[in-house]
């Protein structure tokens, strides 16, 4: 279980000190899939980086399984907007790199990673270089790289935003089912409201300046076990979409009024 208590983060530059996020309180249960949405600059990526341990909060506590996060660990996996596979390494070497750095490299984990790679339909690409793969394939390979050290918490930083629409829909389903199968906890940062509804159990709406949690939505129970594409086609999808959309607009208006 992950919990954030009164988390603040101030960014310091020579010109100013910016309160990036303030008094963030949230908990994520094991196996839960949550999304962060909100206007740009609302600090959702900052919160994700804090949870990843890339930097520490200015004040407040972040606990994972009752242990404070002070730096990156092999328990969390992070997926970026683009795949960022190393172009000079083959797909297999790219995936093994995560294992080497987390000190989990051995015959078993290597074999498991290769099994996952073929589960995701990339078994013939193990010795190919990233440049030989399409965008969707590369993002799948990046998913395998993230999952290879078997993290329990996955942080997804707009992982589908650089893909074309069809690939994105397919990959949403694939990521969703892979994570559910392995019973992973996941946090998705996205600017796409439909994607948040389609994939997650709960949605945290952030407002900006300073970034803080404005509202939390429980996604209707009937959506939770469906694949993202099925959720998007559900007759009730639009109704819920409208509810969240109104709040999202309120947040954006509030920002444009103050600025």
């Amino acid at each position: 279980m992950l919990s954030l208590t009164d988390v603040d983060k101030v960014y310091l530059t020579e010109n100013e000190a910016v309160q990036a996020v303030s008094s963030i309180n949230l908990t994520v249960e094991n196996g839960e899939f949550v999304s962060f949405i909100g206007p740009s600059g609302c600090g959702k990526t900052t919160v994700l980086s804090l949870i990843a341990g890339l930097f520490n909060p200015t004040s407040g506590k972040i606990l994972m399984d009752n242990k404070e996060i002070t730096g990156p660990t092999e328990k969390t996996g992070y997926m970026l907007q683009e795949d960022y596979l190393f172009p000079w390494l083959t797909i297999q070497k790219n995936i093994e790199l995560g294992l080497i750095i987390t000190n989990l490299y051995n015959e078993q984990t290597k074999k498991d990673a290769m099994t996952l790679l073929s589960d995701l339909g990339l078994d013939d690409k193990a010795n190919a270089f990233p440049s030989e793969l399409s965008g969707g394939m590369r993002q799948r390979a990046a998913l395998v790289r993230m999952l290879a050290p078997k993290p329990s918490l996955l942080l997804l930083d707009e992982p589908f935003s650089a893909l074309d629409y069809q690939t994105k829909l397919k990959l949403e389903d694939l990521v969703f089912s892979t994570l559910k199968q392995q019973n992973k906890t996941a946090i998705l940062v996205t600017h796409d409201l439909s994607e948040a509804i389609a994939m997650s159990d709960r949605i945290f709406l952030f407002s900006s300046r300073p970034g803080t949690i404005y509202r939390v939505f429980d996604v209707p129970a009937e959506f939770k076990d469906k694949l993202p594409l099925e959720v998007r086609n559900d007759p009730n999808f639009h109704l819920f979409f409208q509810t969240v959309w109104k709040e999202l607009e309120k947040v954006e208006n509030q920002n444009s009024n103050t600025s």
Binding site: A52, E74, T76, G77, Y78, Y84, L97, I101, T102
Partner: peptide
């Protein structure tokens, strides 16, 4: 060098040497 390549390794807990 693109910050994001470093970020990939940092999220795995890479040391400066790595």
């Amino acid at each position: 060098v693109d910050e994001n390549y470093k970020k990939v390794l940092l999220t795995f807990g890479a040391s400066k040497r790595q």
